[in-house]
Write a protein that binds this DNA or RNA. Structure first.
Length: 988
RNA sequence: GGGCAAUUAGCUCAGUUGGUUAGAGCACUUCCUUCACACGGAAGGGGUCAGAGGUUCGAAUCCUCUAUUGCCCACCA
């Protein structure tokens, strides 16, 4: 058996094990390796399966499936990815160890706009635009880019240790998923849930495409609310006359000859087709039906009345621009107003904007205000804070824009999702996200799915020119009287490219130029990756998946839509539990981003301290939003180092152990020493706690539990207690036989517990635990799984049976299949040992405290007396004489019932005993008296507070018995302490 | 304008269904390079759990209000 290196070499270990794991197929589900007949019966559409609810996958659930939130193909691993994937990997590795048929499906998203932007930037360096290349050539460029750079992110995920089944890796633009997208679109169309029409959508003038409501991120912007005069037309109208600037009309919104409107986007006035007031607004009632002159354009437009207008806001008069504002659009339809689009797709004023034609929208705003001012029509600018939509990809201010787009009717889909939730089929962790999800579903709006970019899934719709010519589509935009929804005449929606028009047999067909929103492929992810729409084995076996792990930002974009798609296309929710973890932020509270220069690169951290340390740090911080700084990774680094050294020590101590076994049956409780019984008992407790926490996504707490168990219990106490047992130098000559047996059992327990600790830690720190565990395996079996990167059959050893089973050293190839060490009954629970070690810890701490307080050098061998107030305590501490002496660095120790103090001695008091040491010559009597006085006051206060509680009749009456007992015990302990303090004080 | 979080030691945060003399990590003070580990060991100081009410035998924990911060949603031009 080889020793561990003094220093853990993370880089070497990580590459070695990851490539071995992957090449041997360890990440693939177990069912890939067994014959069809033995595959556990699929739960696909199993109606008897009830809400697995909040207690996690039931023990009988033999599968565990997660689909990865596919990172963008343009993505570079950032801390958000790291956190998300570390959490998934912990869950996946844990479930795999539990013996479930475990699958984590990885993949990458084609990220329409983001990717197109990247490639456009690239060709811009050659001074080319996508239009220069043309659609086909440009798409070739994108694919080329994808093949060259698209695997960066998946390589980086491997560095984290993510145990995804890479043989099932998918891309949202691959053939299978493209087929799924067409199937979904056509199915929705056939169900009447897809329509096409003219609406105001969010338009990004930079990306030159429509955006969904979710993609237009609203940000508060300090803008202007501009007040502008619109002259009233005298009737009968002789034509426009410049207004007199008197304006002595008094009321702000209306003068003798003009009204005043307020707007935040003055440039859109070029497309005004009315102004509106509230029908009951007494100030303006008389204006309804009159006309005003639209300044600059010199067009006459009507004053209409509409309930939408809020009389309280601005002047109570609003300009109406149906082509550039969603509310105005709705008003326009109610009043059959003309829609005048005054902008080009790239955000410039078009030919309908008169002299402003060709100006950028913001430039035009300035010029228009300037012109109004010159004409005396500009009243004032109020500073105004309002929400403005920004493109979530490029942050450009979004323009509400009238255009023809494809939509999905969402109401029917949302209703199914709401019903599924009522039936308990979707459970959010933490629960508060449920409300966010439900509120969005209840207020759902139709989903604009067409995008005017080139990189994406083409819409499976074809236009027949012959049929189209028989309808005048172009008139729709200008004729508000017609329905905004297209008749679909001349449009063929089909799974396969049609050869001819089914109506007129014309072969002159052209595919719709738009592509689908990226999320239209993402929302199919949980089943498209498994082969849908084909009825594949994977789909049967692995759908629905178990859990979804993601960040809150994409609950609407992705989570909610996946649920709706799963229900719509497969009749079942795609996952039962949704774990929403925190957002990663910089320590400043801002979002981490490269552009802000506050990001920490996970790969740099991995290189510096290893993936395991990164993982552990992230998880420990993940109880809520994660605020990161470099120092925060020290927790994980320190802990991984601690684990490494503890295991190194254990391996050194068991070198001469011949029968190293993981069989729990090897231990007979009564033959074990108290420390051995104690650590076995503590381990069992902690394993159960970790199990419970993991099953409800309490990863941070689980990591903390393990951290403290390993560090405090195992390293600080157990290993220290074991040292004298296993290190032969200390053997008292009078008990050689017993000592040899004690050494052997301690070695066995060290091996046994440490090996199980490695398994508990494995999901959190996979690399280091594998590396060390292989040494344990080598110790036990004389061989290890050599890290040859072979392409042979992915053989697996049979997993070690669950805790408590008869294990015959059948070690699997990897710790990944070593089984999860907590499935069995309580083997080692031991109240007696726990109590005994508690006493030992008190005694040792008491001595150490005295040593430190009186500055007694560690080399000074000291004499201590423990005065036991209880018989039980005396027995235990007498038995631990050697341990107490070693850990307290004592030359001599006496455990007595009664004690006559001689000379200058000081003590620490505990409920069942007091520890004394001799401090001849260094005792500051006054200081010690003061200290005791303080202790006495504290203890008296404590006693008083317990008394108050215990002696309250209604406490005795209403509190549970066990609490009452506990309080009484506390009171007794406190009284014993007080007595000790007082005795000491009087003895000075 | 609505909703949701957070507010606990100098800093970063844990605190399960109310029962603790309120915990951890970092930082700090003292001691220690003893043969697993100085990315370590031992000991220690430090908090009226944001504020005010309330429920309860008992509240950091439940309720109400207030303050501060952050996030999400929202068509008020």
């Amino acid at each position: 058996m080889t020793d561990l290196d003094k220093q853990y070499n993370s880089a070497q270990v990580e590459t070695k094990w990851y490539s071995l794991w992957e090449s041997r197929g360890y990440f693939r589900p177990a069912s890939d390796f067994v014959t069809q007949s033995t595959v556990p019966s699929p739960q696909f559409l199993d109606k008897t399966q009830k809400k697995s609810g909040d207690r996690g996958p039931s023990p009988r659930d033999s599968r565990y499936v997660i689909v990865i939130p596919p990172p963008n193909v343009t993505g570079m691993l950032h801390m958000g990815h790291a956190l998300n994937n570390v959490i998934q990997d912990i869950l996946v590795r844990w479930n795999r160890m539990k013996g479930r048929d475990t699958l984590w499906v990885p993949g990458v998203d084609h990220a329409g706009i983001a990717t197109q932007n990247v490639v456009e930037k690239k060709i811009a360096k050659e001074k080319k635009t996508r239009w220069d290349l043309g659609r086909e050539k440009f798409l070739e460029e994108v694919w080329k880019w994808k093949h060259e750079h698209g695997s960066t992110i998946t390589r980086q995920l491997r560095r984290l240790g993510a145990s995804c089944d890479w043989t099932r890796e998918r891309f949202t633009m691959d053939d299978g998923l493209s087929k799924a997208v067409r199937e979904a679109f056509v199915t929705l169309y056939e169900r009447g849930l897809i329509y096409r029409g003219n609406y105001i959508i969010n338009w990004c003038p930079r990306c030159q495409t429509a955006l969904s409501d979710e993609e237009a991120a609203h940000k508060d912007v300090q803008g202007g609310l501009y007040h502008i005069k619109y002259p009233i037309v005298k009737s009968p109208s002789p034509g426009f006359q410049p207004p007199s600037s008197s304006g002595r009309g008094g009321r702000e919104g209306v003068g003798i000859d003009h009204i005043v409107v307020a707007t935040t986007r003055p440039e859109t006035m070029l497309g005004d087709t009315a102004v509106a007031v509230h029908p009951n607004d007494p100030r303006y009632k008389h204006l309804i039906g009159k006309k005003v002159v639209l300044p600059l354009m010199n067009r006459e437009i009507p004053v209409i009345a509409d309930e939408f207008v809020d009389p309280e806001f601005g002047t109570g008069i609003v300009k109406v621009t149906p082509a550039h504002d969603p509310n105005d659009f709705a008003m326009g339809r109610r009043h059959k107003l003309e829609q005048i689009n005054v902008m080009t797709p790239d955000g410039k004023i078009n030919e309908r904007g008169g002299v402003y034609k060709g100006m950028d929208r913001f430039e035009a705003r300035k010029k228009i205000l300037q012109d109004l001012e010159e004409q005396g029509l500009f009243v004032r600018r109020d500073s105004h804070l309002h929400a403005v939509g920004h493109c979530y990809r490029c942050d450009t201010v979004v323009e509400p824009y009238l255009s023809k787009q494809w939509f999905v009717k969402m109401q029917p889909l949302a209703e199914k999702a709401l019903k599924a939730h009522e039936q308990g089929k979707t459970v959010f962790f933490p629960d508060r996200w449920t409300k966010v999800y439900l509120n969005w579903l209840r207020g759902i709006r139709d989903w604009c799915i067409s995008r005017q970019i080139w990189w994406g899934h083409p819409i499976p719709a074809w236009h027949c020119r012959a049929c189209a010519e028989s309808t005048d589509h172009r008139s729709h935009a200008m004729d508000p009287g017609l329905s905004t929804v297209d008749t679909m005449k001349g449009i063929i929606v089909a799974r396969e490219t049609p050869k001819e028009c089914p109506h007129c047999q014309s072969k002159d067909l052209v595919q719709d130029p738009d592509v689908l929103d990226t999320w239209f492929s993402s929302w199919l992810w949980p089943f498209s990756t498994l082969g849908w729409p084909d009825k594949t084995g994977d789909l049967k076996k692995f759908y629905p998946t178990s859990d979804l792990v993601t960040a809150p930002e994409i609950i609407f974009f992705w989570v909610a839509r996946m649920i709706m798609a799963g229900l719509e296309f497969l009749g079942e929710v795609p996952f039962h539990r949704i774990y929403i973890h925190g957002t990663v932020r910089a320590a400043s509270g801002l979002k981490m981003s490269k552009s802000l220069g506050n990001s920490i690169d996970p790969l740099e951290v991995i290189e510096a301290i290893g993936a395991d340390a990164l993982r552990y740090s992230l998880v420990m911080l993940s109880a809520q939003d994660v605020y990161l700084s470099r120092e925060k990774f020290e927790v994980g680094r320190n802990f991984t180092t601690k684990v490494w050294n503890a295991c190194r020590f254990v391996l050194m101590q068991i070198q001469d152990l011949e029968s190293a076994s993981t069989d729990a049956g090897q231990f007979k409780r009564l033959e074990l020493s108290l420390p051995n019984r104690w650590i076995l008992s503590r381990f069992e407790e902690k394993a159960a706690g970790v199990e419970r926490l993991l099953s409800q996504f309490g990863l941070a707490q689980a990591a903390a539990e393990l951290y403290h168990f390993v560090w405090d219990d195992f390293c600080d106490w157990y290993i220290e207690l074991a040292k004298p047992m296993v290190q032969s130098g200390d053997v008292p000559p009078q008990s050689v036989g017993g000592q040899a047996a004690l050494k052997l059992q301690t070695q066995k327990v060290l091996f046994f517990v440490c090996e199980r600790i490695l398994r508990l830690l494995h999901p959190f720190m996979p690399f280091m635990t594998e590396e060390i565990w292989q040494r344990f395996k080598e110790k036990a079996t004389g061989r290890m799984s050599l890290p040859h990167v072979s392409s042979g059959n992915p053989g697996r050893g049979s997993p070690i049976k669950a805790f408590g089973d008869d294990e015959k050293n059948e070690w699997p190839e990897s710790i990944m299949f070593a089984g999860w060490p907590h499935d069995g009954p309580k083997h080692f629970y031991d109240a007696e040992a726990q109590k005994a070690i508690g006493l030992l810890q008190d005694a040792v701490s008491g001595i150490r405290d005295l040593r430190a307080r009186f500055q007694i050098a560690p080399t000074d061998k000291l004499k201590a007396v423990i005065v036991c107030k209880e018989k039980g305590a005396r027995e235990v501490l007498t038995a631990f004489e050697r341990e107490v002496k070693t850990l307290g660095r004592l030359a001599e120790l006496q455990c007595v019932r009664t004690f006559e103090k001689k000379g200058a001695m000081v003590a620490n008091a505990f409920p069942s005993f007091d520890v004394f040491i001799s401090v001849e010559g260094i005792l500051d009597l006054e200081k010690e008296k003061k200290r005791l006085g303080k202790k006495i006051r504290e203890t008296e206060a404590w006693i008083k507070s317990i008394r108050k509680k215990v002696e309250n009749p209604s406490f005795a009456e209403k509190a549970p018995k066990e609490i009452l007992e506990k309080e009484k015990e506390k009171l007794e302990d406190a009284q014993k302490l007080l007595l000790s303090y007082k005795t000491q004080l009087t003895s000075f």
